[in-house]
């Protein structure tokens, strides 16, 4: 039977079971409420109960409960090792496998070494004039300043 073809008896049953909000009705019957002025008082009564029920709110879970639940996850300790190491790893990286932050640190270290080494090579290959100027700048030498007055 199509939703529009429901008789008043069935509509009254649906109202009494699911309330006035058609979103809670069975999908195949949800469109049947429209165009039934005879049910106005029943709809009003069910809507009043829906609104009353909606007044019962439940507070959202707090962070402490979430933390307790996550901490109770079995196998969490095994992934992070034991003792101090586990505590340190958990504090540093609570999100998953430890190789992620360790790999990132190793990559950063290698990149730093590369930059440092290439900078040293550049300095060694510069011409004597630049070398003198850099040396003077590094030592806060006044020789160059005196030259500017000339």
């Amino acid at each position: 039977m199509s939703a529009a073809g429901l008789d008043e008896q069935r509509l009254s049953e649906l109202l009494a079971a699911y309330g006035a909000d058609a979103a809670r009705w069975p999908e195949e019957e949800a469109g049947a409420l429209a165009g039934h002025p005879d049910l106005k008082s029943k709809i009003a009564k069910e809507r009043a109960l829906d609104e009353m029920l909606n007044a019962f709110k439940v507070e959202a879970p707090d962070a402490a409960l979430s933390a307790r639940i996550l901490a109770a996850r079995p196998g969490r300790e095994m992934r992070h090792g034991t003792g101090v190491w586990r505590a340190l790893m958990s504090a540093l990286w609570p999100e998953g496998p430890v190789w992620v932050p360790m790999g990132t640190c190793a990559a950063a270290l290698l990149f730093g070494l590369y930059i440092g080494a290439s900078g040293a090579l550049t300095a060694m290959s510069s011409d004597p004039q630049t070398e003198t100027a850099l040396l003077s700048l590094a030592m806060a030498d006044s020789v160059l300043e005196e030259n500017w007055d000339e």
């Binding site: 439940v58 409960l65 979430s66 639940i69 996550l70 996850r73 969490r76 992934r79 998953g96 496998p97």
Partner: peptide, 20 residues
């Protein structure tokens, strides 16, 4: 597979409903 982030997502999705 041991991803803590997945646990956090499931917790965020279901804890409010379970608690309510």
């Amino acid at each position: 597979a041991g991803e803590e982030r997945a646990a956090r997502f499931l917790l965020a999705r279901y804890l409010p409903r379970v608690l309510a």
